[in-house]
């Protein structure tokens, strides 16, 4: 079997796999990163969402041969300690029920916030409409994304403010 090298959650990983193995099964069965879920195997439910070079992608539809050398982030790599604003917001809004789709939901939402820091409801619909949830947590997902966006902005404002203060101190 051919060997491949990927960067997964910031670390280079080398392994052998059949060339047509979907990235999903490399993550789950080879690298034992089971946070990324199998739901349909057909790109229909998006439980398998990961970031491929920063873009939200269906890992069940990406053969490993097409992922060689790319940069992958999975739910396990989103933050080391559930500190990502989305994870915090998900806890605050009590989003999950069964929880199975939630890693995929969060990864789709993370990609959305990375490019649209302050998404409208329409932005959320467009970015999240492929992520299925059988438990009906959608309204809480929407609230959590809005909450995380605000947290991020508050964080960014605070960081900018403390940066500005540091500047002033230095020049003061």
């Amino acid at each position: 079997m051919p060997a491949y090298t990927l960067t997964v959650n910031g670390e280079p990983r080398r392994f052998e796999a059949a060339a047509d193995t979907p990235l999903l099964w490399v993550l789950r069965d080879v690298l034992h990163l089971t946070g990324t879920k199998y739901g349909c195997g057909a790109g229909l439910c998006r439980a398998c969402t990961i970031h491929l070079d920063g873009e939200a992608s269906f890992s069940c539809q990406i053969p490993i041969s097409a992922a060689e050398g790319r940069n992958i982030t999975t739910i396990e790599g989103l933050s080391p300690d559930r500190s990502h604003p989305l994870q915090q917001a998900w806890i605050e809004e009590d989003v999950p029920q069964c929880g199975y789709c939630q890693p995929g939901q969060i990864m789709s939402a993370a990609a959305l916030l990375a490019r649209t820091p302050s998404p409208s409801d329409d932005d959320i619909d467009a970015a999240m409409r492929s992520n299925l949830c059988r438990c009906g947590t959608y309204n809480r997902i929407r609230s959590a994304i809005h909450r995380a966006a605000k947290m991020k902005q508050a964080g960014a404002t605070a960081a900018a403010a403390s940066g500005a203060n540091a500047e002033e101190t230095r020049h003061g």
Binding site: I75, G99, P103
Partner: peptide
Amino acid sequence: TPAKVDGSAIFGL
């Protein structure tokens, strides 16, 4: 909830 937002929750699969 916490284990369901970071991928650490263990489902059957």
